[in-house]
């Protein structure tokens, strides 16, 4: 499996650390909504197909990357810097809507 880092180009997967599901939305740190915190920590979409996930190029430029990878074929369809998100899950969601 190769991941094409936007800085470094195509690199072997051993250079990257998997940081898991990128769909999770972290509640506001001040939030006392326990249900939202529990869902953030424990609940996963776990799709069979395209999966939005976070990888870090820990053996390279150390950038955090948002990768869309197919869990049935391991095919990667997009790689982008996480920092481009500005952590705004709500905005991402709004942009996804047609």
């Amino acid at each position: 499996m190769l991941i094409t880092c936007p800085y470094c180009g195509p690199r072997d997967v051993i250079e990257f650390t998997y940081q898991g599901d990128g769909n999770r939305e972290r509640p506001d740190p001040a939030s006392q909504n326990f249900e939202a915190w529990n869902a953030y920590v424990y609940d996963r979409l776990n799709p069979a197909g395209d999966h939005n996930e976070i990888w870090q190029h820990s053996g390279g430029c150390r950038a955090h990357l948002r990768v869309v990878r197919n869990t049935l074929t391991h095919e990667i369809s997009s790689v982008a810097f996480v920092r481009g998100d500005h952590g705004s899950a709500a905005r991402r969601k709004a942009e996804d809507k047609p």
Binding site: I14, D21, N46, E53, T71, L72
Partner: peptide, 12 residues
Amino acid sequence: GYNSYAQRGNLP
């Protein structure tokens, strides 16, 4: 170490 439904893994 990554989500997968494929019944095969990778070389690392």
